[in-house]
Design a protein around this nucleic acid. Structure first.
Lengths: 340, 340
DNA sequence: TTGAAAGCGCTAACAT
DNA sequence: ATGTTAGCGCTTTCAA
C-alpha cells in the first residue's frame, strides 16, 4: 500500500505538498500539482482513512439505532437515510438494538470510542438519564421516537394526531366498541398513539374498555392471536385500531379464517401504509407516515450538529389517514361517493 | 477525552502497561493491573478506535453491498448478518448500490481506503474484471449472487434447482403454457432461474415461448403491468412463474381486479416466501430461500478470510418449494389430500 | 509557494 | 514484569 510518503518521494516533493493536493488546498503551483497527481495515479495511491480519522478527529461514519431492520418502517427509513448521507460521502452503520437496553448502550459506545461522528436514534430503550452522558462524546439526535427530557434535536411524527384521526374515522362510521392494539416497548410512539386513540373516544363520549386494549401486538402472528382472543368475548368490538399494517394483516387473515367479513363484522385500521396494505383483500385503511422526509431531515439535522451549528430543533411531521375498504366496505364506499 | 498517556500518568505507570491491560496481555502484575483499571475508570477512559485502527491495520467494520434494503430478501439478510457479526464486535456498513455500477465501485473503494476489513457482495453489477483489482486491498466474498470467473469464496442458493422444482410443480398440475417473469440486472441469480425454468419445460417436452417471457419484473407494480399485457394475448398462459412474492402479489391483485380467478384462470408461483405470501388471497405458492443460514455462513467465511485462513469455499444452499393455494386451489388441494 | 517537524493515540519490538 | 522508543499515515503549524 502506497503512503503519502511514497507519493512525495516519487514526485520529488514533500508530504505537505501532497497533502495539500489531496485536500485541495490553495498555494500549490499548477506544475507541482500535476506532478503529485501523476505520482498518485502511478502508485495507485489512496489516503488511508484510519490515519485521516485519527488526525482529523472525524470518521465520516454515522450510526443509526433501530430495533430491527426487517420492518418496513425502519428499512424504508434506512434506505432513504443511507442514500441521503452517501451524497455527502458518509457511511452508515446499522445498529439493531433488538429492544435491548444493553445493546442500545453498547452501540452508543461507538461514540465514545470515536468510531462514528454522530448517532441517529430511531428507537429508544433506556431512560434518558442513561443516554444523556453519551452526549459529551458526540452528537445524538432523536428521530421517530421522542422523549420529553431529551435536550437533543428531535424529529418525530405526530402519532397522537394520526391515531386520533384514524379513531375518529371509525367513530364517524358509527362504531362504538373499538379495540386498540399496539406494540409496547416503553415507546413514546405507542404511548402517544394511545393518547390520541383515547382522546377521540372521550371527545365522542365513548367508553374506554380496558378489555379491548392489547399492548404487545407488533407482527402478523400477534394479529392472529388477537382475533383468537376476541372471538371469545361476550361483547366483541366492531372495529379495531392497530399500530401496524402487519398486525392488521394478521387480524384480517385470521378473522376471515373464522368466517368474519371485513369490514361488516369488524372494521380494521392499520398503520404505516406499507405496500401490502393495498394488496390485501380488503385493502387496509391505514395511516401513512412520511418516513422519507423524516430520514432526509434527520440527515440534515445531524450534519448540522456535527458541524457545530447549534440547533435544538424539535420538529413534528404530520401523518395522513388513507381510507380503504377494510373500514369502508365496497357498498358503503359507493354510497359515500354518491353522497358527495 | 482522556488518552492512554493520561491513564499511564495517573496510574504512575507507562503507556505500555496500560496498553497491556487494555488488550489483556499477560505479564502484568495484579497490583498494577488494578492501578490501571482504577485510573481508567476515574478518567472515564476509552481507547480511541481510529488510533487502534491505524496501528493495528484493522477497523472492526465490514461492508455489505446490496441493491436496496427495502426488499425483504435483503433486509432479512442484513438483519441476520448484523446480529451475527456484532457477536464478534464487528460493525456493519450498509451499502445500497441501487443497481448502479459506479456506486458499486465507490463502495468497494472503502476497501482501498482501509475503512473496512472486508466486503460481502450480495449483489454484483460490474463485470468481474472491474471488481477483481479490489481483491488486493482486502477480502471480498460473494453471497447470493455469483460469478464463474470470481476467485473468491462464494455462498449461493441453488436457484436453478429451485426454479426447476417450481416449474415442475406447475407442469405436473397440467399446465402447458407457463409464463416466466423475473427481474433482470445482469444478475446470475436471474439467469440461473431462467435456466432451471427452461430445463423443466424441456424435460417435459413443452415449448418455450419467448412471448411469455418477462425480464424486468421486480416489484408489485411490474406484476400488475404483466397482467395488463397478458390479458391481450391471443393465447394467454395458464400459469406463471415469478422471481419474487411481490411480483406474484401484484399479478394476483391485478388478475383478480380484471375478474380472473386464481389459480383456476392463472396459477401463480412466487419466490422468497415472504410473510405476505401466506396472507394474500389465495396464499402464494413460493420458493423458500434459506437467507438466515446464508447470512450466518457469510459472516463465518468472511471472518476466516480476514484472519487469513485461506478458504475458497464455494457453497450452494438448497431452496425449498412451498405449495399453497395460488397453484393448487382449495378443491384440488382437498382432492390431493384425499388421494394421499 | 514549499518544506521540516510535531503530533493525533495507540501497540509492539526491544531492552532491562 | 515493566519501560523506552519507534512508528502506523496523515495534517498542520511554523519557518523559510
Amino acid at each position: 500500500m502506497a503512503t503519502i510518503e511514497d507519493v512525495a518521494k516519487l514526485a520529488g516533493l514533500s508530504r505537505t505538498t501532497v497533502s495539500r493536493v489531496i485536500n485541495n488546498h490553495p498555494y500549490v503551483s499548477q506544475t507541482k500539482r500535476q506532478q503529485v497527481l501523476h505520482a498518485m495515479k502511478e502508485l495507485g495511491y489512496v489516503p488511508n482513512s484510519s490515519a485521516r480519522s485519527l488526525r482529523n478527529q472525524r470518521t465520516g461514519i454515522i450510526a443509526v439505532l433501530i430495533p430491527r431492520v426487517t420492518n418496513l418502517f425502519f428499512s424504508k427509513f434506512i434506505e432513504t437515510l443511507e442514500i441521503t448521507i452517501s451524497k455527502s460521502d458518509y457511511q452508515l452503520i446499522v445498529c439493531q438494538t433488538q429492544y435491548s437496553k444493553e445493546k442500545e448502550l453498547t452501540y452508543l459506545d461507538l461514540l465514545k470510542t470515536r468510531q462514528i461522528d454522530g448517532v441517529i436514534m430511531a428507537s429508544l430503550e433506556n431512560d434518558w438519564k442513561e443516554v444523556h452522558p453519551y452526549l459529551q462524546y458526540g452528537p445524538i439526535i432523536l428521530v421517530n421516537e421522542y422523549e420529553e427530557k431529551a435536550d437533543v434535536p428531535t424529529i418525530s411524527l405526530n402519532q397522537k394526531r394520526g391515531a386520533y384521526e384514524a379513531t375518529e374515522h371509525l367513530i364517524k362510521l358509527g362504531h362504538k366498541r373499538i379495540a386498540y392494539c399496539c406494540g409496547q416497548h416503553k415507546s413514546n410512539v405507542a404511548k402517544e398513539r394511545e393518547k390520541g386513540f383515547k382522546q377521540a373516544l372521550i371527545d365522542y363520549q365513548l367508553i374506554i374498555d380496558e378489555e379491548l386494549t392489547y399492548r404487545k401486538a407488533d407482527d402478523i402472528e400477534s394479529g392472529r392471536e388477537i382475533i383468537k382472543s376476541i372471538i371469545h368475548l361476550q361483547k366483541p368490538p366492531t372495529a379495531i385500531f392497530t399500530g401496524s399494517d402487519e398486525v392488521a394483516a394478521g387480524i384480517i387473515a385470521e378473522a376471515k379464517r373464522v368466517g368474519w367479513s371485513i369490514p361488516e363484522n369488524l372494521a380494521v385500521v392499520g398503520f404505516d401504509n406499507q405496500p401490502i396494505a393495498e394488496l390485501l383483500q380488503p385493502p387496509i385503511t391505514t395511516v401513512h407516515q412520511p418516513v422519507q422526509e423524516m430520514a432526509e431531515k434527520a440527515a440534515l439535522v445531524l450534519f448540522n450538529k456535527i458541524h457545530n451549528k447549534v440547533s435544538t430543533e424539535i420538529l413534528s411531521l404530520p401523518l395522513k389517514l388513507i381510507i380503504r375498504a377494510s373500514t369502508v366496505g365496497e357498498e358503503s364506499e359507493v354510497k359515500e361517493m354518491v353522497s358527495r
